[in-house]
Design a protein around this nucleic acid. Structure first.
Lengths: 218, 218, 218, 218
DNA sequence: CATGAATGAGAGTTCATTCAT
DNA sequence: GATGAATGAACTCTCATTCAT
């Protein structure tokens, strides 16, 4: 039995090799993830233009040159971040869609998912900075943009399905998104933030608007 | 004797008064205007962050140093442009308020004024930079926040008047503001922008939302 | 009698013209003086290189362009300041020379004049700045340089007169000047500064040095 | 088995150790040295204030940005040079102190060490800028002030030992320091500089001064 | 002659990207 | 593949000087 252990030295070697390869693989993935994670934070803090590649790699334990083994440029990491966000957010909205018992419920669940998302501490959906002179600067991060894209796609599909015939889908998505952004701000300004109320308010606005739009289309 | 006085006709005086600013004064005003104009264009093209002072001055026939005789920094030009915008839009909104024949009309006129304004070439609304593909930066200066406050005050007064009993005024104002921002973007993305349609759409959304909120308050 | 006053209108005019001319003349002198005065202060505070023409004219009520009506450049005003200082300091040292009853007395009176001069609040003979990191930066202003020139001339003349035969005049002047500078610092660091003691100390050093140099020339 | 160990002779190890710094490390040291060297030359030519970072980097074959990999600013290079100088001169002065056979010899050796040092090309003493014709800026960093303090301590100890009873040590140290500075300038202005003569002159001045101060103390 | 805005060379500095190690 | 120093274009901003008023 003990010989067994020593019996296949090559296998052992192989295993080690596999492990090393796996480790290397895992390291590569970890490095990529580390860069994305750091980039997310820095973009959120400083905005896209103000962010430097150095800022990003400073948030990892990698060297500056290593950045370019994973991304061609600052722009590429931004895109990757955007794509990643889409992947993260999509299931939330899909769940809302599949679990909803009717159209109103779908709207409500979508807003609820959104407000929940922006309330979570790790969300960077809306970032604000205040310059010394009270000027508010709002950056829209990859996450919030991804969210908007999903939303619009959903709304379009919905309208195509006949849920809201004759309504301009881009305008509707835009209206919903804009409302969501600003209502989120209001909500977060209150203590405690009432996600249900916000979702309910936004849903009612949208449904009422749809109702009237359908009644007397523009 | 009285003729003496009339020997210098008023027209002469008037003319003198018209260009009594002096050439220096006029040049200064023209230069300032040229910088603002160039800045507006460059901000719209490149976005705020990506714009450099050199880009702006390149859009005029002035020397680089001259920029600093008029503005301390890129940020200062931006604020000047922004404030200029707010100063222009405020009377439009006031007119909407005073001329509206009923509540629906007030809403419509307000949106119409806003969309008209953001469609004008002087509007800075375009300066929601898109880089690398769609990141936006939205500046809200004290002036523009004041504008928002005005809006909110209107909505509050309206609700207090019984127009929309029991509705959360802050949420309502936020929803309207957010919708306006995003619908404006959609509208501008189309060629030609249809201001009436946008105003009508937004108005219907708000009225429908209000209707339903009143019916079944949250 | 009253006619007298009115009798010679041309004279009156002439007088006025003279006055104006005089005023203009006086203004010109005053402007020049103002620039020099301001420059003295700024050079002393910031040093030659760090001083800008704007710094100088900011210290007057003149416009920047006016500077160039009086001086071709920053360098020229510096030279003018130097020359002016020579003119101011020379009489002090001449008095020392002419009133001295013997050689030792001359040395003493010269040092005394120097220490008195650098103790006066309006003196800029030695200016110090302390950078944040404790680095001491010493600028030698036109005044102190002028002083050095006078001193050297005196020493040379003195040696040529046989007062200190065979001694290197430049080294002697340098030694005296260096001692004077540093002793002045020590003196000013004490409260109260004892000009007589400092002058006496320096004089003894010089006389003793001379004595020994004469005895055993290098 | 032991031969195995010797199979890699120590010389090989030694060699390895000698350039075990690696090329990167060596390049860094060389670059730093190149910048310092270039800076020394430019400071000497143009003076501290008139020198620009570009002037310095132009004196090397490095790119402008590389400067900032080594020094934060012009001031920092200057300090590095200065400190380097002080580190070099200190042992010279200590040797003078320990090797001197009597007091006069100590003085002479100290001056000689100082004048030797300021004549060497590595000396920064030249960096007393002359602009536009003769303004000097003398930097005294913490290190050089420490040097002065050492000098003063020596003088004080000496006086306490009875070598020069009753003499103000601060004034004496100041006088010696000031003389040294100015005489060094005179010496360097001559071609060739005569270090022995300068040291001898300064020594005689100090000894003579001391003699007379002791005879008739102030 | 005073004025002060315009000029533009040039200073200090940053930073995305490359590349030898 | 990781490293981090080198690169140099490009940026912000200053300032001596000029010149139209």
């Amino acid at each position: 039995m003990t010989t067994d252990t020593l019996a296949h030295p090559e296998t052992a070697h192989s295993d080690a090799r596999i492990d090393n390869a796996g480790k290397r693989e895992r390291t590569k993935l970890a490095n990529r993830a580390a860069i994305l994670e750091a980039a997310r934070g820095v973009f959120a803090d400083l905005g896209y233009e103000a962010t430097t590649v150095r800022d990003i790699i400073r948030g990892t334990d990698l060297a500056s040159g290593t950045f370019y083994n994973y991304f061609k440029s600052k722009e590429e990491v931004f895109h990757a971040l955007h794509d990643e966000s889409v992947v993260r957010i999509r299931p939330l909205l899909r769940a809302a869609r599949s679990e909803a018992k009717d159209f109103a419920d779908f709207i409500y669940r979508s807003f609820h998912a959104f407000f929940t998302f922006v309330s979570s501490p790790e969300s960077l959906a809306v970032v604000e900075m205040r310059s010394p002179d009270r000027t508010r600067v709002r950056f829209e991060t990859p996450e919030s943009l991804a969210l908007f894209d999903e939303l619009r796609a959903d709304v379009k599909a919905m309208i195509a399905d006949g849920a809201a015939p004759g309504i301009d889908p881009d305008f509707l998505a835009a209206a919903a998104y804009g409302m969501a952004q600003e209502i989120a701000d209001q909500m977060k300004a209150r203590n405690p933030p009432d996600i249900e109320f916000a979702a309910s308010f936004a849903t009612t606005m949208v449904l009422g608007g749809l109702e009237r739009l359908t009644r007397s289309p523009n």
